[in-house]
Design a binder for these strands. Structure first.
Length: 552
RNA sequence: GCCGCGUUGGUCAAUCGGUUAAGACGCCUCCCUUUCACGGAGGAAUGAGGGGUUCGAUUCCCCUACGCGGUACCA
């Protein structure tokens, strides 16, 4: 049987971390088994529908590199992929009717107000939320309780109704969850869930079963919060298509908030200062904004990597994986049962790892706009790659991300020479120079901005206390020497610098820091002679001269 | 309340009956580096509680506690 999995979000808002992880596990499973990954839009709740959410979800998946094989954006032979459109085709009503005819479901004419009244009336301290079930349904207005003629005339009169599943008590429902093993429920605890709403839309319960069948889904992954309603779905499968045709279920653990307990929510992100959604999202109805991982400066590789490790591991101490490697190694039996608290510090660590491992050529296009936003213009000549080959994908360059042996700590360079990276542009060379200092993409502006803009302020306090005439004289001489230097390379500059220091009888260390502050403006950055080389002769001289004026 | 699921350091976690209970993040110390990082070496820190089963339980079973989820014409 062909492996087919689906992600079935409802377009009600931004795509949450947990949602992306569900997608990821779907995707990894599908790819691992050579199967299909389909996107199905569960837009059956008209009241909660949010325009733009579907597009947002799709774009998020594209960013993360987890594009579905089929979906509303890419029709396959199982379409349409929006449940509202499937409803219009009469698909769900047909199956609901089939259930009614077989005696497994019934019409219920109770209005929302009547339901509310019922809940109030039967509420007790022992049973705070009475269910519409075998103990109560005979007191309600439904075709089980009403006599046939009455039901017929109600129907004929166009009275609004829903169709509910008829759950018989005293049965044990059991199934094997791929993550949790045997799970058992008694039907005593499950209510007569609505299958078809008064507006003709199916509820999730009907839709998930019908569509999983029609779309030939072989394995169904969803969040743990769905576990309690699994018996309804199993019964539906039994009544409609046969339990033996049912997909294998896997209920994924939740992603929890870092402090305290409970599901991670957008609120927690706002409160603790980290993103929860994949990309920026503004609710079109409330105007409420939320920041995304993308805009915070995460690399999609890191995002996917960290999400994969939140609830799964390959059994080795290894933690850095690219998508291909995850596909190769993913297996459901190594998915955790318990929920995992989200740790933003660790998330940032993953991002820094990926920034370091990749060549800047892989993400310079994402960093460039950040410089521009900060008012730093990069000259076009700095963006040119000398041997620019538009056909080369500048992605995988280094490293331990590719480790076919699986032996921890053993880094293997990929033998695949077809992935020769392009020669970095000057801008990219600069990014490569500072990347180990950056955990989020915007950090590059702080770490490399001085290459393009002379420091607005110079940390003279770091230099002034130990400043003297001899040092002043040294730097005046240095400017002259730099003018003469014919080998403009880090090592040559350093050698020359140290010789000068020796000649002036000053410890090189006492001069290195001042030089750094002159060029950078503060005490940070890569090796100072790398900076000078990158800056170029004139700019280096200019900055030293400028600083000298401030110091004298 | 009822039903279900879960519970190894602060966090992510390995272990699939026998280990000095890995590793990672974070934290601390030191080294490297006359910057900031990277890197390297160390350190503190873990099996919720109680019963069983067993020669032996973190591991299997039961109970309790705690947490989470569900209990909608929401998904």
């Amino acid at each position: 049987m062909k492996v087919r999995v689906r992600f079935a979000p409802s377009p009600t808002g931004g795509l949450h971390l947990g949602g992306v992880r569900t997608v990821l596990y779907n995707y990894l499973f599908a790819r691992h088994h050579g199967g299909d990954f389909v996107l199905r839009i569960e837009d059956t709740d008209q009241a909660r529908y949010v325009p733009g959410a579907e597009e947002y979800i799709l774009e998020s998946l594209k960013w993360a590199g987890l594009e579905p094989d089929e979906g509303p954006h890419k029709e396959g032979k199982y379409g349409p992929y929006r449940q509202s459109e499937r409803k219009a085709l009469g698909i769900y009503a047909r199956y609901a009717q089939q259930l009614v005819d077989a005696g497994h479901a019934y019409y219920a004419f109770d209005t929302p107000e009547e339901l509310e009244t019922m809940r109030e009336k039967f509420k007790t301290p022992e049973n705070p939320s009475p269910q519409y079930n075998h103990t109560l349904r005979h007191r309600m207005r439904n075709s089980l309780h009403l006599d046939q003629d009455e039901t017929k005339s109600l129907l004929a009169a166009g009275t609004p109704y829903v169709i509910r599943i008829k759950i018989d008590p005293g049965q044990t429902i059991q199934f094997t969850d791929m993550i949790r093993g045997e799970v058992t429920f008694s039907t005593d605890g499950v209510d007569d869930k609505v299958l078809l709403k008064a507006d003709g839309m199916p509820t999730y319960h009907l839709a998930v079963v019908v569509d999983d069948h029609l779309m030939e889904i072989s394995h169904a992954f969803r969040g743990e919060e769905w576990l309690p309603s699994a018996p309804v779905h199993i019964l539906l499968w039994r009544y409609l298509f046969g339990e033996n045709k049912m997909p294998h279920w896997a209920h994924l653990p939740l992603i929890l908030k870092p402090d305290g307990n409970g599901k991670l929510s957008k609120r927690d992100g706002d409160r603790l200062g980290f993103p929860v959604f994949a990309m920026d999202w503004t609710d079109p109805r409330t105007g409420e904004p939320a920041t995304g991982f993308r805009e915070t400066g995460f690399l999609p590789q890191a995002f996917v990597n960290l999400l994969a490790m939140l609830g799964w591991n390959d059994g080795t101490p290894r933690e850095i994986f690219d998508l291909d490697e995850l596909i190769r190694r993913f297996s459901l039996d190594r998915v955790h049962k318990g929920g995992a608290k989200f740790d933003f510090e660790k998330a940032k660590w993953f991002n820094n790892e990926w920034i370091k491992r990749l060549s800047a050529t892989a993400y310079s296009d994402k960093v460039l706009p950040l410089f521009e936003k900060a008012g730093i213009t990069i000259p076009p000549s700095d963006l040119v790659r000398t041997d620019d080959d538009p056909g080369t994908e500048p992605v995988l360059v280094v490293s331990s991300a590719i480790d076919p042996t699986g032996i921890p700590g053993l880094d293997v360079i990929p033998p695949d020479l077809s992935l020769v990276p392009p020669t970095p542009s000057r801008f990219e060379q600069i990014l490569d120079l500072v990347k180990e200092r950056c955990t989020l993409l915007p950090d590059f502006v702080q770490q490399a901005g001085f290459f393009y803009r002379a420091p607005a302020t110079i940390d003279v306090d770091a230099v002034k206390p130990k400043w003297n005439a001899a040092k002043q004289q040294f730097f005046v001489e240095l400017i002259r020497q730099l003018q003469l230097a014919n080998d403009w390379q880090p090592h040559a500059l350093e050698t020359n610098f140290k010789e000068m220091a020796a000649a002036a009888s000053i410890k090189p260390g006492d001069l290195l820091m001042p030089l750094r502050v002159m060029l950078v403006g503060a005490k940070f950055g890569p090796h100072v002679f790398d900076i000078a080389v990158m800056l170029g002769r004139e700019e280096t001289q200019r900055r030293i001269e400028h600083a000298l004026r401030l110091l004298s």
